[in-house]
Design a protein around this nucleic acid. Structure first.
Lengths: 91, 91
DNA sequence: TAGATATTTAGATATGTTTCTAAGTATTAC
DNA sequence: GTAATACTTAGAAACATATCTAAATATCTA
């Protein structure tokens, strides 16, 4: 996990909202964008950050690009956080 | 949990290193600072961000200010992340 | 092939973050 | 009270991020 990239990606509210939208399953860039009052260019920038952090995966489907969550990175991140606080650490 | 503040705080590598140093137990600002090649003023700014996110607690001890981790926020954050990925969500 | 649709890339601007130096506040010790 | 130590606050400079418009790329359909 690229820790720095992941935390940087999560630090923006629009990006967290994008991830939330993807909870329900894969969506195209356009479908995700419907929920935001922002240009598709800006959205695209956010997608790039999320992808670089490996938080989402992409797949082209015709004209569309379909985004989906990459659950394993969330797991890694959650585990990392659990390890960070001393109380009931397992490692 | 102030989600935005917490993620913003975690997005900086120096701040994550500060948190890591505090794993071993409470430390004064000065003790924490020893590990970093940065002015105390800059450190102090980072402390303020961590405090604002409620990730650390402070207590004055004479001339010193003692910092310690606030575990509950880490728990909240870890839980939030677990909830964010759909696989084995409990809520 | 030309046009329409979906998305990304490039370049610019505004805003936010990190860091510094200098000055301020709080506490201890004389 | 004055000086020393520990830390924070203020203000400025450098750098990074978020957003926009305009242009580019990729795919589909006629």
């Amino acid at each position: 996990m690229k820790q720095q990239e992941v935390f940087k990606a999560m630090a923006n509210p629009t990006r967290r909202a994008i991830l939330k939208r993807l909870q329900g399953g894969p969506l195209t860039a356009g479908e995700i964008g419907e929920a935001f009052d922002i240009t598709s260019a800006s959205l695209s920038h956010h997608f790039a950050v999320l992808k670089h952090a490996d938080l989402v995966r992409t797949e082209r489907r015709g004209q569309h690009i379909v985004y989906s969550l990459n659950s394993t990175v969330f797991e890694d991140l959650a585990r990392m956080l659990m390890d960070l606080f001393p109380a009931n650490r397992r490692v």
